[in-house]
Design a protein around this nucleic acid. Structure first.
Length: 429
RNA sequence: GGAGACGUGGCCGAGCCCGGUUGAAGGCGCUUCCCUGCUAAGGAAGUAACGUCGUAAGGCGUUCGUGGGUUCAAAUCCCACCGUCUCCGCCA
């Protein structure tokens, strides 16, 4: 959520920033108008309240002194004021709610450095690592869904039977590889990130804090009976750890990581990327998340990106890093780098990590603040997060990349400690 | 799910029966200063957040779990909800 005061003091600057996203700015105009009205009416209401408070005090004194007649006169006056106060209050509340509703749908202001652009086609590829299109042999040009069938490590048909399209079920070594990837990713980051195992079903308020609601309700699973939401990412519960709390600067940056299942309805993408693990409704992910001061945020952003990147290196995958343009970054984000792993069998770049700096956008929604070491008052913190490792697509790229001519899969050394000494998924037969 | 008790400031804790001078006693913690070879102990002062107006000093408003209600006036009375604890039930 944007700071209403910033919108007030620099309306043109804010509108220009939102326009960079390709979003309309009409709602901002409306906010500016009704916010002015809100303050006007609010001031009037507060003046009346001040009068009522003063009168009530006088009434108390008069009654103590037994001057009942005088007290009753003042009570009458106060009663009259009360009616007007109620009217004003109702109106102010209404407008304030309206302001909030609108602000909840306005996206974050992109960072100055965020490249301009309309869509994913304008994202800037900042780096490509380990990728040589001519280096892949025929045995690596087999898509993971075929490999998986051959090795019996992924069973899509059975998952579809029990849960429907775009659900998957790992089997045998496939399932074990999932577990190894998760453990590896957690251990890889435990030097700096506290491991959390949060709830995966959360309240509406928790989804609003990250920006997943109200705008993107269609993308999430909703348990209507209990009004709870299945999290699309651990970012959701992790961001709310500090909701409505005030930290001291010395505690920052705070760093959390969590492995959770992630649930996505993928509304609007029916029929797209449906093969194998390209896009699924439920998947495992290790997420890294940090609360930081504004000054710390750049360094933390770089840290998360470096950690996500090192996973690609250690797993022996080719990857590239994208600097997402203003038209493609998420609604809550001010700057996002994506990591895409190359899957030679599917011959596609798969988004495996999205590393974002949300500035104070989420923290203002969640009301997470800190007390600066010097000076008075509180400041809204910054939140940052990124996937430490998103399982399905890494699993896919890994299986395709490390397939040997005989059909076996070489498992990278980094995973060996998590596989009980196994170093490969044996060839079929 | 049933019954009972409770929810006050950074923390502990009074106030609630009997509404007004209580933004809230007292204590702890924290900050500054004084005293003091050092430390400890002791003394003094200060110490909430948010909104709004103001260049500022400061003014006004809101906040005693949340939301409603009664009243001239609510931490205090009434209702609903949420949460915590205890007992019972159920249970991986």
């Amino acid at each position: 959520m944007l700071d209403i005061r910033r919108i007030r003091t620099d309306p043109d600057g804010v509108k220009a920033a939102i326009a960079r996203r390709g979003d309309g700015t009409e709602s901002l105009d409306e906010v500016i108008t009704i916010d002015a009205r809100r303050r006007e009416l609010g001031a009037e209401r507060d003046d009346i309240r001040a009068r009522v408070n003063a009168l009530s005090k006088q009434v108390g004194g008069l009654r103590r002194d037994g001057r009942t007649d005088e007290a009753e006169a003042l009570q009458d006056e106060s009663r009259q004021l009360g009616e007007r106060e109620r009217e004003l209050n109702t109106e102010v509340d209404e407008i304030a709610g309206r302001v909030r509703d609108i602000l909840l749908t306005v996206g974050n202001i992109p960072a100055d450095e965020c490249p301009d652009g309309d869509s994913e086609h304008d994202n800037v590829i900042t780096r490509v690592e380990g990728y040589d299109p001519d280096s892949y042999a025929d045995h690596q040009r087999v898509p993971h869904w075929d490999i998986a069938t051959e090795l019996g490590i992924l069973d899509v048909d059975r998952a579809v039977k029990m849960s429907g399209a775009m659900f998957v079920m790992y089997r045998g070594m496939g399932a074990r590889l999932v577990r190894a990837l998760i453990d590896y990713a957690l251990d890889r980051n435990r030097d700096a990130y506290e491991e959390i195992r949060p709830p995966t079903v959360v309240k509406t308020e928790t989804m609003i804090s990250t920006g997943h609601l109200p705008k993107f309700a269609d993308d999430a699973y909703h348990l209507e009976r209990d009004d709870l939401w299945a999290i699309p990412t651990a970012e959701v519960p992790l961001t709310s750890i500090g909701r409505d709390e005030v930290f001291v600067e010395a505690e920052l940056p705070m760093k959390f990581m969590a492995h959770t299942s992630c649930f996505r309805r993928e509304a609007g993408s029916a029929g797209r990327d449906t093969r194998g693990l390209l896009r699924v409704h439920e998947f495992d992910k290790v997420e890294l998340l940090s609360y930081a001061t504004p000054e710390q945020s750049a360094e933390v952003h770089a840290d998360i990106l470096a950690r996500a990147e090192s996973v690609m290196v250690e797993l022996g995958l080719a990857y590239r890093i994208l600097d997402l343009c203003t038209g493609d970054i998420g609604n809550s984000s001010a700057r996002t780098f994506d990591i895409e792993a190359y899957a030679p069998g599917a011959d596609r770049w798969l988004e495996v990590s999205s590393v974002s700096w949300f500035s104070d956008y989420q923290a203002r929604r969640a009301n997470i603040r800190y007390r600066p070491a010097v000076g008075k008052g509180t400041t809204v913190i910054h939140t940052l997060n990124g996937s430490g490792l998103a399982v399905p697509r890494v699993w896919a790229a890994l299986v395709e990349t490390h397939r040997r001519p005989d059909g076996s899969i070489r498992l990278p050394e980094a995973l060996h400690p998590y596989l009980g000494g196994l170093t490969e998924i044996p060839a079929p037969g």
